[in-house]
Design a protein around this nucleic acid. Structure first.
Length: 521
DNA sequence: GCCAACGTTGGC
DNA sequence: GCCAACGTTGGC
């Protein structure tokens, strides 16, 4: 029976799917689909799956029966994918042998054919340029450089995965691929409804939520004027150029010679007044309506980036900003948030690290991790010491109840401390990685999302690059998010592009990062 | 007692 | 009438 369980990467690593046909009786020919979570929990309906994953995970695009993500077919002309035949998942010999009732089976086959056609055409609706050279799945952008390499970072898996359910980035990169294929605004998401302006320059932010692609959290291309930015060719002799290429993978590192010399010092680096910060901000939350500054006081206004932090903190921790009345009475950003429903009696909640799960969308910090909040006017963050205690749980739960839509967590480093970057190792990113970790299915954080980075650079390289102060290909998200030491508001997308807004990001203490495995659970 | 297999039902 | 969801049952 074990061979009947097929991987279901659409749900994440470790998820398995099993389809059983009724072989006799009145419902002969009918099939039941079961899923097994990475922790072994059995799920036999979409309702159960939704309960299991929590309300933050949007399963509206997930075809429970097929185990795949079904995206609304774009209206653009579909381009067929050559030589990508859908391969029907094979059932076991036992099942095939016992298959009876041809009339029902025939109908089922017809359905499967229809579904097959759907699944073949829908994902195939992408333009030829920008297709992954290995898996054939398109990605947004011009198909050059970083996006392509990121896309192809999964190619080794792509080749090994046999069926439509495992067909490359359709599933592994499901979110990104889906977003990239959608060419029209949905008209229903917050961005569309708010009619937030598109950023023409980047083309990335303020996009319809259905069209946002995680892979293209586009990194700034630098200052554009320095020697590094002017250089457009590899030097051929730097350590990056000399590094032996990984088979099947494009090099993810830009030649040292043509990295922006301004580096993190001259660019955004979480700078609150940067364009990117504003864009990030507008992407993360609708900007709260702030009173229009009067007269010359406008210069004294904090940028919205920081205002929002305060806004959130006041809502999150009324005591933190108790001195100020503003915000305390502000309407919640998201007035109503459903608590996570209880699991079905037959379902056990996934294992969670002690004190790590506090609700549908919040993760309490693991022991040794500090939760730090910015306080208005304070030069140093307000720190809520870990391990998770009542003092940390309370505000989080309160935040959940009050509908606060995000939590800001900062590492125990000074906010503008830059040298902490070298402490940042790929191991730590697993907490913010959106993939399901087998055996560690943190529902709140990492469901449904593909890893942003598949092949972490070797630590030595990471240190070198960061010390150079150069643009590092290895940590674009970090750069965009402001890097360690700056506020991190992560916006994570669930299946189909729905945002996980209630996501806390725990950045470990520097000292813990030095201990190998200290962050592993 | 578990669970795969099958039956039932209510919403659409 | 279809089918998702879930109850029931019988083999192990």
């Amino acid at each position: 029976m074990a061979e009947d369980w097929l991987d279901c990467p659409a749900l994440g690593p470790g998820w398995k799917r099993h389809e059983v046909y009724h072989k006799s009786g009145v419902t002969c020919g009918r099939s039941d689909t079961y899923y097994q979570s990475p922790t072994g929990d059995r799920i036999r309906s979409k309702v159960e799956l939704t309960r299991y994953l929590g309300p933050a995970c949007d399963l509206s695009l997930f075809d429970f029966k097929q185990g795949i993500l079904c995206y609304p077919t774009p209206k653009v002309q579909a381009v067929a994918v050559p030589s990508k035949k859908w391969k029907k998942p094979s059932r076991s010999a036992k099942t095939r042998k016992r298959q009876v009732a041809p009339q029902r089976t025939e109908r089922k086959e017809t359905r499967e054919d229809e579904t097959k056609a759907d699944t073949d055409t829908a994902p195939a609706s992408f333009p030829a340029p920008g297709c992954c050279e290995n898996c054939g799945i398109s990605f947004s952008g011009d198909g050059t450089g970083r996006q392509g390499s990121r896309h192809c970072a999964k190619t080794a898996e792509h080749r090994e995965l046999p069926s439509i359910e495992s067909r490359g980035c359709l599933s592994v990169w499901a979110v990104e691929s889906a977003a990239c294929r959608v060419t029209e605004d949905c008209g229903a998401c917050s961005t569309c409804l708010l009619q937030l302006p598109h950023d023409v320059a980047s083309g990335l932010f303020c996009k319809c939520e259905r069209r946002r692609c995680l892979q293209i959290v586009q990194r700034s291309r630098g200052c554009g004027v320095c020697r590094g930015c002017q250089t457009q060719e590899d030097c051929g002799h730097c350590r990056v150029c000399l590094r032996p290429p990984c088979p099947g993978l494009r090099r993810q590192w830009r030649c040292v010679q043509w990295r922006c010399l301004q580096g993190k010092h001259g660019r955004h680096r979480g700078g609150c007044d940067s364009k990117m910060a504003a864009l990030r901000h507008s992407r993360a939350q609708p900007v709260p309506i702030l009173p229009t500054p009067q007269g010359s006081n406008q210069k004294h206004q904090k940028c919205h980036w920081r205002q929002c932090l305060q806004f959130a903190m006041k809502r999150l921790l009324p005591s933190v900003g108790s001195g100020s009345e503003e915000g305390a009475g502000s309407p919640p950003l998201h007035p109503r948030r459903a608590r996570r429903p209880h699991l079905a009696p037959t379902l056990k909640p996934p294992l969670a690290t002690k004190g790590q799960e506090a609700g549908a969308s919040f993760v309490l910090p693991p022991p040794g991790t500090d939760l730090v909040f910015l306080r208005e006017g304070a030069s140093s963050p307000v720190q809520v010491p870990g391990p998770a205690t009542a003092s940390t749980e309370a505000p989080l739960q309160e935040a959940q109840c009050s509908g606060l839509s995000w939590v800001v967590a900062l590492p125990q480093v000074k906010q503008e401390k830059a040298d902490a970057q070298e402490e940042w190792t790929p191991d730590t990113t697993v907490l913010t990685s959106p993939t399901l970790q087998p055996g560690c299915p943190s529902k709140a954080v990492d469901l449904c999302l593909p890893p942003v980075k598949q092949e972490p650079p070797d630590p030595e390289e990471g240190k070198e690059e960061n010390k150079d102060g150069c643009v590092s290909e290895s940590a674009p998200e970090e750069e965009e998010a402001g890097g360690p030491g700056t506020p991190v508001i992560m916006e994570i997308f669930s299946l189909g592009g729905t945002r996980f807004q209630d996501t806390a990001v725990w950045l470990p203490r520097s000292k813990d990062l030095k201990k190998p495995g200290a962050r592993k659970q």
